[in-house]
């Protein structure tokens, strides 16, 4: 839902980042207000996951320019765990397995870290079990997954559901979901979309990274952005996604070439 007077939660301004001196993000700008749902689309390798990881603070990426303000603060000055505690959530495209760390214990520690930041009291093992069982229903996940190590041996779809479970527990302010729909069967897709819709409110915002219109049929975006070669090439409403579905990305090359020919603006 677009409300021009809603507070700005995340303001990305000309963000540039490289990995091993290789520029990947080449000036991304994007403003997200409370209540909004944004979709980012774009070809493989266009920089979508990189954007999400830079926002979450992955140490492999060096920020080489630009600014990101989050709740009025300099996001890039915060440690990854501080970003998470203050409500930035990244649902990973490829969630990693962590053998030896119990999923239940992990979820509890993560939830309590977020709660502490919101000034809520810490949940003990019992109180947390109640909460987690309630949230498991949102993603229709089997409680047996709590007893296993984090993501260890989970199927692709199970890992994605575990991401949404975490999102449901952590009550994010800005949730970035990186291809959470990939690898999900049709029922799971509906469950995940239902979960995201259920958690979206006028106070938080969601950034969906996806390749497929079928997710956007279930979660209606307020804005659709097309990423190409490390920038946002075009922004539109939900109809832009439909247009992409029809036309593919060939037009992107022409626009990119045009953008590269354009004279450099002098301020």
């Amino acid at each position: 839902m677009i409300r021009p007077d809603a507070p700005v939660l995340l303001e990305i301004d000309d963000l540039r980042a490289s990995v091993e001196d290789q520029p990947i993000l080449k000036g991304v700008s994007l403003t997200i207000r409370a209540g909004e749902i944004h979709a980012v689309m774009g070809r493989n390798g266009s920089g979508k996951s990189t954007l999400s990881k830079v926002l979450a603070g992955h140490p492999a990426y060096a920020v080489t320019g630009g600014r990101v303000r989050y709740r009025g603060e300099d996001l890039l000055a915060l440690e990854p765990e501080e970003r998470a505690r203050t409500g930035l959530f990244l649902g990973f495209q490829y969630p990693v397995e962590i053998p030896g760390v119990s999923n239940l214990e992990f979820l509890r520690v993560a939830t309590n870290a977020r709660r502490a930041c919101k000034g809520e009291e810490e949940l003990d093992t019992f109180a947390f079990e109640d909460l987690v069982h309630e949230r498991l229903k949102v993603v229709q996940m089997d409680p047996a997954f709590l007893e296993r190590s984090v993501n260890e041996g989970f199927s692709g779809g199970e890992k994605k559901r575990n991401e949404i479970l975490q999102m449901a527990l952590l009550d994010p302010l800005v949730a970035i979901l990186d291809e959470t729909d990939s690898g999900l069967d049709i029922d799971a897709l509906r469950i995940v979309a239902g979960g995201v819709n259920h958690l979206a409110s006028a106070d938080n915002a969601t950034l969906l990274i996806t390749h497929y219109q079928r997710l956007l049929d279930a979660i209606t975006p307020d804005y659709v952005h097309v990423m190409a070669s490390g920038r946002i090439l075009r922004t539109g409403g939900k109809e832009l996604a439909l247009e992409l579905e029809e036309r593919g990305y060939d037009w992107v090359d022409a626009e990119l070439a045009a953008a590269d020919r354009a004279p450099v603006e002098v301020a």
Binding site: A56, G57, H58, P59, A60, E79, P80, E81, R83, A84, R85, L90, F92, P95, V96, E97, I98, V101, F106, V109, A110, A113, R114, C117, V150, Q166, L170
Partner: peptide, 13 residues
């Protein structure tokens, strides 16, 4: 690094 980052991105120092 990815495992550590995963935990950190959930608010764990």
């Amino acid at each position: 690094a990815d495992q550590l980052f995963y935990l950190q991105s959930r608010g764990i120092g």
